[in-house]
Design a protein around this nucleic acid. Structure first.
Lengths: 187, 187
DNA sequence: CGCGCGATTGAGTAATTTCAAATCTAGTGG
DNA sequence: CCACTAGATTTGAAATTACTCAATCGCGCG
C-alpha cells in the first residue's frame, strides 16, 4: 500500500522497512474529482497532501476578487496551505483539483508525531521543506528577472506535460499575466 | 557566548542547556564590513549565516547583467544561497553586506551533524525551514497580486526601519521596479 | 445545427521603462 | 565655513509593454 509514497521517501532518506510501514499507516487516502476542493478558503486546514496521481492548483483570491495561482502540484508533490497547516489556522488559499486526483492525507497531529519520533523521517521532512523553500525562492527569482514570455518558456521546458493538462487561462493566472497577453506570445 | 542565537533557538523549541551549548560550539563568528561579501557568485557555498547584527542582501545577476535583490536579511535572520549550500555546489547568488555585520557561521557539515544527532534541533531546523518556505510563498503571492506601489507600502509597514537602512535604489531592485518608478510613488 | 466555452485578435488606454537632465545630499579638502 | 564632487534621488518626456474591453474564431457536445 502507498507504494508511491514509500518510493518517494526512500529516494530521499534511508529508512527501515518497519519504520516506513509505521509512517505509512499515519496517512489516509482520498480520491477527489476534477474541480472539487481539498482546501477551501477560510476553513481550518488540518491536512497536507501527497499527490499520488492527478493535478491540483493552489489559488488565492485577492481583495478585488481576482484569482491567482500560487502553484500547481502533480504526481509525487506535496501541497497544502502550509501557513494555515503549521499554524493550525484558517486557509487564506484554496486547493482545487484540475484533474481527478488521488492523494494521501497527513494530519498536522501525525506530522508532529513523525517530527518527534523518527530521526530518519525528521531528516526527510527537513529535506522536503528545504526543497520547497528553494523552489519558492527560484520562482521569486524568475518573477523578478524574467518577463511573462520567458517564464512561459521556462515553464514548458521544465514541465512539458503541463500545457496539455492545464487550460492556458490558468497558466496565465500562474504566470501573472492576462490570458490575452499569454495568448499573444504562445502561438 | 552567542546569546542571541541561544535566545533565538529557545524561542522556537525547548532544549537542554548543555545540548544548546554543544550546538553553539559548532558555530564560528565573523565580522564583515559594509559592502563586503559573505558569498560570491560561482564560489562553493559551505556556510549558512545567522545574523547577530547588521543587514545583508541576497542578490542575483541575470543574463543581461542586471542585478536583482532576492531578499534582505537582518538581526535574527538566517541567510545563505541555500540551494548551493544544501547541494554543496557553487553559488548562483551573492550575499553582500549593506551595513557592518556580525554573523554566526554554520558549515554544511555541522548542519548535517545537527540534523543527525539532536531531536530538539531537528525540530528547530524543520520549523526554520518551514517558516522560510512560508515567507517565500507569501512573497510570491505578493508579487502576483500587488503592484509595486502596494508592495512598497507592505514593505514599509512590516519593516519600517528598512527604508532608513536601505537606499531606495536597492529597494527598487527588491520590489522589481525601476528606481524611477519607485521614486514617483514613494514621495 | 447551434450552443457554450476557451482561445485568439484588434484597438484604445493605462502603466512602466528607458534615457536624459536636473536636483539634492553627505563627505572632503581647502 | 564654504566650495566641490560623487552618488543617490527626483523629474521630464518619449517609447515600450501590458491591460482592458469587445468582437471573433474554433471546437466539442448535446
Amino acid at each position: 500500500m502507498h507504494l508511491n509514497l514509500k518510493k518517494h521517501i526512500e529516494k530521499i532518506v534511508s529508512i527501515e522497512t518497519d519504520e516506513l510501514e509505521q509512517v505509512a499507516s499515519l496517512f489516509t487516502q482520498k480520491k477527489i474529482k476534477k474541480n472539487q476542493f481539498l482546501i477551501r478558503e477560510n476553513e481550518i486546514v488540518n491536512e497536507a497532501y501527497y499527490i499520488i496521481s492527478g493535478l491540483v492548483k493552489l489559488t488565492y483570491t485577492d481583495d478585488l476578487g481576482k484569482l491567482h495561482i500560487v502553484s500547481f502540484a502533480m504526481e509525487d508533490w506535496w501541497e497544502s496551505d502550509f501557513n494555515a497547516y503549521f499554524n493550525r489556522s484558517r486557509a487564506t488559499m484554496s486547493l482545487q483539483c484540475i484533474e481527478d486526483t488521488e492523494v494521501l492525507c497527513l494530519s498536522i497531529e501525525n506530522y508532529e508525531l513523525i517530527c518527534e519520533k523518527n530521526p530518519a523521517m525528521q531528516l526527510f521532512l527537513i529535506k522536503l521543506s528545504n526543497s520547497g523553500f528553494i523552489a519558492s525562492q527560484q520562482r521569486i527569482l524568475s518573477l523578478l528577472t524574467n518577463n511573462a514570455q520567458e517564464r512561459y518558456q521556462q515553464l514548458i521546458n521544465r514541465y512539458p506535460t503541463l500545457i496539455q493538462r492545464v487550460p492556458k487561462n490558468q497558466l496565465a493566472l500562474y504566470l501573472g499575466v492576462s490570458r490575452e497577453t499569454l495568448s499573444r506570445f504562445s502561438s
